[in-house]
Computed example of a mutant assay.
Amino acid sequence: MTVVDHGGLMDRVYRHQRHIYDTTRKYYLLGRDPMIAGLNPPPGASVLEIGCGTGRNLVKAARRYPRASFYGIDISREMLETAGRSISGAGLTDRVRLAFADAAGFDPQRVFGRQGFDRIFISYAVSMIPGWQAVMAQAFANLAPGGELHVVDFGDQSGLPRWFRGGLRTWLGWYHVTPRSDLFDVAARLAQAGGGLTSERRLYRDFAWLAVMGRPAAH
């Protein structure tokens, strides 16, 4: 069996693309801003992004929710370098912390000195993570009581023309991206197993899917 160095792969994929990533991706990474708008963390909340990439989402979320603290992890050191510059340029270094970490084995206490987070979000990363179901399970386990896990990614494009779906899947494959057709099912099972609730939104004729999993509040 071939073992893939996922971090090294992501560095190779984005070593040069990271410089134009946000400019080009805004046209098809749809659903990111609706996801950020739905986070709605309470004052003083902690918010983690898994697979923070260039830091684009962290900057937008930190500006939208000035009373929350933000954290970001990524397995690509190349992307983290760009994210650090973005956050510094936005004047948010006092509210956003970054760390190199593999989401599959992420320990919030070791990395950030925290037991958990009030909100965790994953934007267009589960389609690139080989063990994405385990990553979602780990993220759900890292929620504080009453916390929420928000995941947005490519949907099945069932409402779009067949020629479009085929062309998109081929193009995504060049970048090691695989839409997860069972995203909603996995989200529902996670929430149910944890005694919580889930919601789902199908955006732009199923181009993008947004799943939210809630952990029960402490009694």
Score class of each variant (00 low, 15 high):
R215W: 07
A139T: 08
E49Y: 06
L197F: 14
Q133N: 05
A191S: 14
A144N: 15
A144K: 15
V3M: 08
F164N: 00
V96R: 06
F154S: 03
F207R: 02
Y21C: 09
G173Q: 04
F121S: 14
L210R: 11
L190D: 00
P161V: 00
P34T: 04
L80W: 00
F100A: 07
G8P: 01
D156F: 00
Y124P: 01
R15E: 15
R97H: 14
R201G: 07
V3D: 07
S88T: 06
L92D: 08
G167W: 11
R165L: 12
V151I: 13
T198P: 03
Y27W: 14
G72H: 00
L9Q: 15
S46K: 11
Y28A: 05
G147P: 06
L210N: 04
I87A: 03
R15F: 11
N57D: 13
N142T: 11
G166V: 15
R110F: 11
L172D: 03
E148K: 13
G8H: 00
T24E: 11
D94M: 10
H176W: 12
D74S: 10
T24K: 11
C52Q: 05
M79I: 03
K26P: 05
G167N: 09
T178V: 10
I120K: 02
A45M: 12
W132Q: 05
A188Q: 09
F70G: 00
A218P: 05
P145E: 12
S127W: 11
D102V: 04
H19M: 14
S158L: 13
G214L: 14
H150M: 05
P145I: 08
R202N: 04
T198W: 03
Y65K: 09
L160V: 02
A191V: 04
Q109Y: 15
M10K: 06
A125C: 11
V96N: 03
V13D: 06
G89Q: 03
S199T: 15
G84N: 10
T198Q: 10
R25D: 07
W163N: 06
A187G: 06
W209T: 01
G53F: 02
C52Y: 07
Y28H: 15
A99M: 07
R77C: 10
I122A: 13
K26A: 11
F106A: 03
R180L: 06
L172A: 02
A62G: 14
R114I: 02
V13I: 15
R201Q: 13
R15S: 09
P108V: 01
A188S: 09
I120M: 00
S76V: 10
G113H: 11
Y124T: 00
E49Q: 04
F140H: 02
G194I: 01
L183F: 04
F164R: 02
